[in-house]
């Protein structure tokens, strides 16, 4: 039922954009916690989009890693800091301008790439088909080098983070 799926796609895409917008600029609340919660909702909607693409593994990992772990840690930090000052802070006009510019740039890139993209047929797109095994093969056979580089990058970041927290190690 392609119509059905399309309906879901537009609904989820719309919600993703709305939640994303509310994350950055919420007219009702300036609480960082609220922003973080909208970011969680954005991530959940994106997971829904992955599901529509039959990328179940990605959807699950998206929720597990981003919503379940990363955002919780975000919230954790926000809650522990005293953010009363941030709630009162005025909007910096220069920052808004710069942010707008970069948003425009990203939007341009996106539009350009969408225009350039050649629509593929439904069957051809189902290479991975959500199969974990297929994804694994893709990662460890054809994309082994970038994957490993990323792993090293993550490791470096982790070691760095630990070094920063342990001040007396210096």
């Amino acid at each position: 039922m392609p119509q059905f799926t399309d309906l879901f796609f537009y609904a989820l895409a719309g919600l993703t954009l709305l939640f994303g917008f509310l994350t950055v600029l919420n007219p009702l609340s300036r609480s960082p916690v609220t922003s973080a919660m909208f970011l969680v909702l954005t991530i959940l909607c994106m997971a829904g989009l992955f599901v529509l693409l039959h990328a179940f593994f990605l959807a699950a990992v998206q929720i597990l890693v981003y919503a379940g772990a990363v955002m919780v840690v975000f919230l954790f930090v926000i809650m522990l800091l005293d953010l009363k000052a941030d709630e009162r802070r005025h909007i910096n006009k220069i920052a808004v301008g710069l942010g707008g510019l970069s948003a425009l740039a990203i939007a341009g890139t996106l539009v350009a790439s969408i225009v350039k993209t050649v629509p593929v047929s439904q069957t051809a797109g189902r290479l991975a088909e959500g199969e974990t095994k297929a994804l694994g093969r893709l990662l460890f056979e054809s994309h082994i080098l970038p994957f490993e580089i990323l792993s090293v990058l993550l490791l470096v970041a982790m070691v760095g983070a630990i070094l920063i927290t342990k001040k007396d190690l210096r």
Partner: peptide, 17 residues
């Protein structure tokens, strides 16, 4: 689901909220 277990973990992780 063919990723049933991942789904479970994902959902459970949301319980923290």
């Amino acid at each position: 689901l063919n990723v049933g277990i991942l789904y479970t973990f994902g959902i459970v992780s949301l319980g923290v909220y």
